[in-house]
Design a protein around this nucleic acid. Structure first.
Length: 430
DNA sequence: AATACGGGGTC
DNA sequence: GACCCAGTATT
């Protein structure tokens, strides 16, 4: 049996004796099998949970579908953020089968603003898997659950334990924080190895028949009591045997390597107002199907080099204008509309938005001269311009003139949602 | 093992 | 600002 944790522990121990270092945390925890602190932990945690658990929408039924949807939504996302999304999503897609059969656009639209949109696409793909392979019922075997798109070690464990009461570990950020403090584990929780070590501890902690409550209790403790910055040790149900607290280390745990800062990117967007038969509409495009914000709609924009303070954007505005020219458009002079900041996990955008008004009469004239029809779609030149913008392959980019009402149909990332809502809001004023 | 992938709340 | 959140997929 190749147990990486134990193997590592033993190996360390042989040299440790010479160096005089302590055994690893994993060995120590393993050794306290008979210790009161494990049984105490599980017992007190469950007593506390039974008394203090929150009334959350997905806790009102033990429907594996509800549990699953909530767990996907809760990935890297706070409970308070998820609740309204969960209600809307379940109302729109009440069953796995209805989710599987819906247009993908609808699923992503329901996810709009929640972020990590591959979660939505994977969720639907997995629903289709379940319909095809399991007759529309969430499977209860580990291998089948784990095989679902978008379901990793945490979510598989969460579904199996919470929905089916199987004694499987479900180790998320909360659980790692709680365990690292209670057992004084100083391993870096950013490393997958540490999560695996935690997963090995859990089965030995789950009281018979209480897997569902136990795993939820562990996360609930992390969310309500054993919080990241300043844990509420004084009201913690397991404070008595918490080694982190006893050693005064609770604020130093868990150990976690810092994330890199997002790289700054300057971008220049255009909010082009339609005229003539496109009066009241705005030009938008769809992002490529892969990569950042895959398949979502946005205002056209390009990478800009100049610093945010730079006044002279002549060159870059020129590039933006080329993009529109390639669409066969003409417009009034561009003027600054607003600047928006938006931070992703790995990129920080400073998006300067210019506005201009389409001039179809000029266009019509140009079209007559050049022989290009009035309703120009997307010529190859535009695709190339986008390619140069590294937005993707460019070839598949779609364009649309949208009215305010169209925003109910298609999904935008929050950055553009904010800009467009502001724009349409102002348009109604005047 | 490292990086891509959103968005927002909190101290 | 920095950190973190009921993480997963891809490289």
């Amino acid at each position: 049996m190749t147990d990486p944790i134990k193997a590592h522990g033993k190996e360390a121990n042989e040299t440790d004796e010479a160096i005089g270092r302590e055994r690893t945390a994993w060995e120590r925890i393993d050794a306290i099998e008979t210790d009161e602190s494990k049984a105490y932990f599980s017992r007190e945690l469950l007593i506390w949970y039974d008394r203090s658990k929150r009334d959350l929408p997905w806790r009102r039924h033990r429907d594996p579908y509800f549990i699953w949807v909530s767990e996907i939504m809760l990935q890297q996302t706070r409970v308070d953020t998820v609740i309204p999304y969960f209600h809307r999503f379940i109302e729109r897609f009440p069953t796995i089968r209805e989710l599987a059969e819906a247009p993908q656009e609808d699923v992503v639209k329901m996810w709009e603003g929640l972020g990590y949109y591959s979660r939505a696409r994977n969720l639907q793909a997995a629903a289709q898997q379940i319909v095809e392979l399991h007759d529309g019922q969430m499977p209860s075997e580990r291998e089948h659950v784990f095989a679902l798109k978008g379901v990793g070690p945490y979510t598989a464990g969460a579904i199996l334990s919470i929905a089916f009461n199987r004694p499987e570990p479900a180790v998320d950020g909360n659980v790692m924080r709680v365990l690292s403090r209670y057992f004084l584990i100083e391993d870096d929780i950013a490393k997958p190895k540490t999560r695996i070590g935690m997963e090995k501890i859990i089965p030995g902690l789950i009281p018979e028949g209480r897997a569902s409550d136990f795993n939820q209790a562990l996360m609930e403790l992390g969310a309500l009591i054993c919080t990241p910055k300043s844990p509420h040790c004084l009201i913690c149900p397991v404070m008595e045997h918490c080694r982190g607290r006893i050693e005064g280390m609770e604020r130093d745990l868990p150990v976690k390597t810092k994330a890199k800062k997002p790289r700054p990117e300057q971008r220049l967007a255009v909010l082009l107002e339609g005229a003539g038969e496109r009066e009241g509409r705005v030009l938008v495009r769809r992002r490529p199907r892969t990569g950042l914000l895959a398949g979502m709609w946005e205002l056209p924009h390009i990478a800009a080099d100049s610093a945010p303070e730079a006044q002279d954007l002549g060159l870059e505005v020129g590039q933006l204008e080329e993009l529109l020219e390639d669409l066969g458009l003409s417009w009034s002079p561009m003027s600054p509309y607003m600047t928006a900041e938006h931070t992703f996990s790995h990129i920080h955008w400073t998006m300067r938005v210019l506005t201009a008004r389409e001039q179809p009469e000029v266009l019509a004239q140009l079209a007559a001269e050049s022989g290009v029809p009035y309703e120009v779609a997307v010529p190859e030149a535009a695709a190339e311009a986008l390619e140069a913008d590294e937005a993707g392959t460019g070839a598949e980019v779609e364009w649309r003139w949208i009215a305010e009402a169209d925003m109910r149909e298609i999904a935008f990332p929050n950055l553009f949602l904010n800009i467009l809502n502001r724009y349409f809001g102002e348009a109604k004023q005047s």
